[in-house]
Nucleic acid binder design. Structure first.
Lengths: 196, 196
DNA sequence: ATCCGAATATGATTGAAATCACATGTTACC
DNA sequence: GGTAACATGTGATTTCAATCATATTCGGAT
């Protein structure tokens, strides 16, 4: 089932697609055909900068949507690349625009989604503003950003994987993080949280 | 003046407030009263994570708005703390909700504003992802970010002012930028742009 | 007119992350 | 079972931005 408010849309405005690792869902510059929902798998949104660097701007996992803002622009501004065998639902742009005009609840839902996205980006920017690798990694882990691989995590927070591993080890040594498995780390609960 | 489309709102739905350093604009858990515009000063949004740490999620400066998503939730999910003597305009939640229902242009304006912000934040994130000071400064100048003081510019793009001055000089020496005055730099037109 | 604070600008030093290199572990696939 | 691809993890070295220091210029207040 699609997340609110997209459940209100007609079946005809949806297309089920399947992708393999490395497949492009769309490319930077393509004309916008709609927005997407990851039924299963993972789609990574990356943008190639002028200097040739590829930066991850969002890592959509099962249950996530992506390219929501494309309703308001003519072309995609990033690449969407499949990182795991995926089932993706494409929601037609025309259908969304029609529903926006005719259904106020739908319109409200869209606005809420965008507001949340703005919050997420502000959070990411705040993260990138931290200069120390330790500070950055600690905050990112506490915000729950370390879900997949450390490599992806490192890319998302703007560090090399090596710097990331080192920071994770250092923070674990200092007791600020707890290593819960190979490549798995969690924040160590603060003393205030424990009962006396 | 408030950014579009908030100018459409009645004067009665706005409250001008003044805060000193350390004052709370609102607290995590407070019932939502509206969204905010920083007329001058600075407001820091912090959140207490599950592990008990207090983390900064956004640092709103003069001209920024914050807590937009609170229109759609009953309680604020972070603290808003004043970091510099500030003038803040509170925009009533009820007034916004009323306007959203009754004024389609206003509703569309909100949505477009959020969509534009999403694009802007993506651009800023792309900028921050560049590791080299030269690359970052060059791209930022090309994007027209250097309008006010170099000090502000440096802060915006996540570099120290010293690193910024050095990059500006280096890029000028290499001919990629042109110094147009004290603290003023502009991109050197590429050869493709000049007529033969 | 002059005093003060902030911005501009640059030089010297240091420190931390990038880079390079490499070993091991894990998973998927033939 | 073998191997290819990739993730995890760490050590050694280099690079480059942060930091510290200092001089000059500009604008606003007295």
């Amino acid at each position: 089932m699609l997340p609110t408010p997209f459940g209100a849309l007609d079946e005809k405005s949806l297309s089920q697609m399947r992708y393999s690792i490395g497949d492009h869902v769309f490319r930077q510059g393509d004309t916008t055909k709609g927005i997407f929902f990851v039924a299963s798998g993972g789609i990574c949104l990356t943008r190639v900068t002028e200097s040739g660097n590829s930066v991850t701007i969002y890592n959509a996992q099962t249950g996530d949507m992506f390219a929501e803002a494309s309703i308001y622009s003519d072309h995609y501004h990033c690449d969407a690349i499949c990182t795991a065998p995926s089932e993706v639902v494409r929601i037609s742009k025309q259908a969304i625009q029609k529903q926006l005009r005719e259904d106020t609840a739908f319109s409200e839902g869209i606005t809420k989604r965008l507001a949340v996205q703005v919050q997420d980006y502000r959070q990411l920017l705040t993260l990138h503003a931290l200069k120390s690798a330790n500070d950055r990694v600690l905050l990112a882990v506490e915000l729950g950003k370390l879900t997949g691989s450390v490599t992806q995590f490192a890319n998302q927070i703007g560090l090399t994987k090596e710097a990331c591993y080192r920071a994770l080890r250092d923070l674990s040594d200092r007791g600020l993080l707890t290593k819960t498995g190979r490549g798995r780390y969690a924040p160590t609960p603060r003393s205030e949280d424990r009962l006396p």
